[in-house]
């Protein structure tokens, strides 16, 4: 598993992020998230708030964003809850980055279905571009992370880059996606298989064929 320890608490970190505050638009979104919960249960909004904070940090640093300790403390203060409880949440979930990341956070799934469908090749492709697991590439563009199952096994192998999934990848297709991103373009998200829209069967229906037109009781076949 990736190292989830928070970035060290240094004077530089304090100086850079000590004054962090939600800007107007994020504050509005944060307050909206808090308002979803009944009075006295505001701390339930800790996950959306951490996400919003991470996004604002991302905007300020032109990256996917991450959560420096002063920002975590700010969120704790915003929700009036103990900072250790917020840190528990932040270190638990992988969608929160505990260390600085690049502009594009390339999360390659390495769990069994993706691995069987060739995720090793995707890692190779990333490595060729100078990405290293858990590090920001020299141009500040990429961070590579190996993650566990993201629930796209039907369209394996897959990669999640920032907020989008790219599925049915081959090393060439991933190269194309990364090239487009590097150029500042937005590649097509979702499956990269020509002719496939989402996770529908790639060829003819192979399972539950009798169910296409009407309901079918399979129990007698068992």
């Amino acid at each position: 598993m990736a190292d989830r320890s928070p970035a060290p608490d240094t004077p530089e970190l304090r100086e850079r992020w000590g004054g962090f505050e939600f800007n107007e638009s994020y504050r509005a979104r944060a307050d909206k998230a808090i308002a979803r919960y009944p009075e006295g249960r505001q701390r339930s909004a800790v996950m959306p708030l951490l996400d919003l904070a991470q996004r604002q940090v991302g905007e300020e640093t032109d990256t996917q964003g991450w959560l420096p300790l002063p920002v975590i403390e700010y969120v704790a203060d915003y929700l009036d809850m103990p900072v250790i409880r917020v840190l528990e949440v932040a270190t638990f979930y992988f969608m929160y980055n505990m260390k600085p990341v690049g502009k594009y956070h390339v999360q390659v799934c390495g769990t069994t279905p993706c691995m069987l469908r060739g995720s090793d090749g995707l890692f190779e492709t990333c490595k060729k571009r100078g990405m290293k697991k858990g590090h920001v590439s020299e141009d500040g563009l990429w961070t590579l992370t190996e993650v566990e199952c993201m629930g796209n096994c039907a369209t394996a192998p897959m990669v999640q880059i920032n907020d989008d999934n790219y599925e049915d990848l081959t090393p060439e297709r991933l190269d194309a996606v990364l090239d487009a991103l590097a150029k500042g373009e937005q590649p097509k998200t979702g499956t990269q298989e020509p002719g496939r829209h989402t996770s529908e069967p790639a060829n003819a229906l192979s399972s539950l064929p009798e169910m296409v037109d009407a309901n079918h009781d399979y129990r007698k076949d068992w």
């Binding site: 598993m1 989830r4 320890s5 608490d9 300790l69 809850m81 103990p82 900072v83 250790i84 409880r85 840190l87 528990e88 270190t91 638990f92």
Partner: peptide, 19 residues
Amino acid sequence: VDEIGALYRGEDMQITTYL
């Protein structure tokens, strides 16, 4: 006094105080 917590998850879970 909320000061002890469990960071990380699964096998990596660690009990600690904030910083």
